[in-house]
Amino acid sequence: MTTHTPFTEKYKPRAFNEIVFGSEEVKIMMQMYEKGFKSGSLILWGTQGTGKSTIANLLPAAIEGKKTTVDVIHAKEIKGNLYQLINRMQNGRNLAHLQDQRYYLVIEEFAFHDENCSVFWTELDKIQGDSMVIICTNEINKLPRSLTSRCECLEVLPASPEQFLGRAKWILGQEGLLLSDPVVLKALQSVAHLRDNRKYLRHLETVVGMYRLQQDGLVVNAR
């Protein structure tokens, strides 16, 4: 039996230039970080499935121009203990400095307002220049103002069908399926209301599956 890899894994961006941005503003800002025209801590916020984590994990390598170690921590791991997070940051920075590297930390689903938050943003002030912290959150309204004021805050929007069209046609081509722009666009538009880039990939997977069933002689109406 052939092992099937879901499109959400098979075709997720592996390099920064494969990301489909839903906002020209975010795309330009990311290019500025990549080229070294901007630096400092970053907050990427928006609904699920818009590519926040993908951007956060691929941006460091784009900045460095090579594969780069990224320290990723989920907010649930620290269970609101900001001192644990600060220790993680300090240890990571020390190790990176020993290796003559810049320290990159990605914090997933950071969404709490704690009385001890001041110790975290104080630490952020210390590391500016030799480290970069990227925070991903679905709920920016839960972050304290003293934190958001210290970071570049960017809303990551889902890609529109038109923006995702080129990537979709490339994916279909990799699967041996050549469809016209209007057909592919219609397929993308059917799930655009879900505002989730992963839904595009799942729907393309369905489209490919239906066409392959047709090739096997089964009666399926491909959409």
Rank of each mutant, 00 (worst) to 15 (best):
K126C: 03
K35W: 11
L165W: 04
P144K: 10
N81S: 04
G176N: 07
M210V: 02
A62T: 14
M132A: 05
L165G: 05
S190L: 01
L177D: 06
D130L: 03
H113Q: 13
R102S: 14
G129C: 07
L105Y: 00
I127E: 07
Y211I: 04
E162Q: 06
R167D: 01
Q215G: 12
Q215I: 03
A15L: 06
S146L: 11
K126D: 04
M210H: 05
V133A: 04
Y103C: 04
A168S: 12
T5N: 07
V106E: 03
E108S: 00
W45R: 01
Q48F: 08
R102N: 14
K199F: 10
E34P: 05
R102T: 12
T69A: 11
R102I: 14
I135S: 06
L178Q: 09
R195Q: 05
W121R: 00
V219I: 07
L42F: 04
L172P: 08
S41N: 15
W45V: 04
V219S: 11
L85K: 15
P161F: 03
R93V: 15
S131R: 01
V119Q: 05
S23G: 02
Y11A: 07
P13I: 10
V207K: 14
L204T: 01
T148R: 12
V133Q: 13
L177W: 00
V191Q: 06
A56S: 12
L154V: 10
V133E: 06
E205R: 01
G49L: 08
S118H: 09
V106L: 11
Y104I: 01
L44G: 04
D181E: 11
I78F: 14
S180H: 13
A168W: 15
G176S: 13
K126G: 07
Q90N: 15
L201W: 00
V106A: 09
P13W: 03
E25Q: 09
I140R: 10
W45T: 02
D181V: 03
Y83S: 13
I140N: 07
Y83M: 10
H4S: 08
E109R: 15
G22Q: 02
S190K: 12
Q99H: 14
C117Q: 05
F16H: 11
G166Y: 15
K169W: 09
L147H: 02
Y103G: 03
L124D: 02
N138Y: 09
Y33C: 05
G92A: 06
V106C: 09
N57H: 10
R198L: 08
T68D: 14
D71G: 03
I86M: 05
K169D: 13
V70Y: 00
L95I: 07
K67R: 14
N197W: 13
V119R: 10
F16T: 13
Y211D: 05
I86G: 02
Q31H: 06
S160C: 03
N81G: 01
V219Y: 15
T50G: 11
E24K: 07
Q214S: 03
L154R: 14
L95P: 02
L177A: 03
K126W: 02
M210R: 08
L185R: 11
R212K: 12
E162S: 08
D71A: 11
E9K: 12
V220C: 05
K10Q: 15
Y11K: 06
G51P: 07
E205H: 00
M210G: 02
A61N: 12
R93D: 15
G22R: 00
H74D: 15
Q90W: 09
E155I: 00
Q84R: 15
N138W: 11
N197E: 03
S146I: 02
